[in-house]
Design a protein around this nucleic acid. Sequence first.
DNA 1: GGTTGTGAACAAATTCACAGCG
DNA 2: CGCTGTGAATTTGTTCACAACC
Lengths: 229, 229
Amino acid sequence: MVDRTSRRIPEATVARLPVYLRCLVDLADARIATVSSERLAEMAGVNAAKVRKDLSYLGSYGTRGVGYDVEFLLFQMSRELGLTQDWPVVIVGVGNLGQALANYQGFNERGFPVAALVDADPAKVGERIGTLTVRGVGDLPAIVDELGVTVGVMATPASAAQDVADALVRAGVRSILNFAPAVVAVPEGVSVRKVDLAVELQILSFYQQRRVPGTDGSRSALPVSDPVH
Amino acid sequence: MVDRTSRRIPEATVARLPVYLRCLVDLADARIATVSSERLAEMAGVNAAKVRKDLSYLGSYGTRGVGYDVEFLLFQMSRELGLTQDWPVVIVGVGNLGQALANYQGFNERGFPVAALVDADPAKVGERIGTLTVRGVGDLPAIVDELGVTVGVMATPASAAQDVADALVRAGVRSILNFAPAVVAVPEGVSVRKVDLAVELQILSFYQQRRVPGTDGSRSALPVSDPVH
DNA sequence: GGTTGTGAACAAATTCACAGCG
DNA sequence: CGCTGTGAATTTGTTCACAACC
């Protein structure tokens, strides 16, 4: 009834939308036309009330007594997430992790083509990885301008992280995915998300010693079906 | 005053403790003996009230008018997180990402030595990566028993994820770090944390189109100092 | 004076439970 | 009858603000 598209979507909901999106893609691939909040919840590993609340922020796209139209919801959600266009990314730091990310096909498949590779180490500049040649950090402004890059993926050592983040921001990047084990400060209007492998393992370590399973990220369920309560 | 060590630590706090831990390590390396909540907050990219609240769940380890003793807090926090011992991990799936993780030194450095590599593809079994030889999924029970592995890192395709998770659980693994773009169900008492690169980029995409920077993960700050308000 | 530790106030997120609609 | 959409209740997390203490 209310125009939800004008409502601000809660952060916790935004973080779950991509998970629903993937489930919807799987359903569409399986030629399933409609889905209930119950079923979608099971696939996404959350509960049905949460699915309904989350989807209600996008609009009233369900049909009572029936469920949600998979294709329609897929479209609305893609639009809401800004995924109707590609967002080219630049990867900074071509060590182990950076190279793996450069070769990872998942980025391309999901609308984030790797447009350029950059490294601060002059010895690595010029190296070819896949179809791309590694460029210097000084090329970032040109990369952003010419290739339309808006997202930077940082796979540098912690010591270089802040300098690289500054360089990305100066070049005009508005979103950063940071794999370096360091907190980086960025100006207002730039988004950073941090993926820290050691931090994740340390959180698991906490829950491992006590036998208290958490509910966020650490999910509990019965062996195969019946994923969450 | 109250014995906080018996209190249940909130999940949100647990997720931040490893970040504080890393800051404390940096401070200790710099031979800094004490730190205020203000300074620690700046380093961790949160606010001081949160730091104090979080640390208060560990106990009253600060000194009013002075701050926290770095070494002492480091020890208490390591103990609380269960990091006074190593937790050997097995990596399942030695594709691009799995190999990068296998070569990543951060795991070893932070107490999570990579003890074994496993792949479902018979063609990959026997391959050497660094000092380790890739073994079959059938070896998981032996790996868990003989090497004391308690953590599984999954870097498999989505299609194999649930089967691999089941195999890990059957072998006795209690904690799983899942890089596969799929939700996996596990029994009560097993913890899973998910790292999904595409999901992170899609969340950034949402905040990129609107110019509304989020506060969790996407942090806003002035250029270098003054990280968060 | 400076800084912690913490109740109390506030805000965000989750879950309940059921009216409303197909 | 079945399932969504959503107010209300509840739980969890954050921030304030200040007494207690060094």
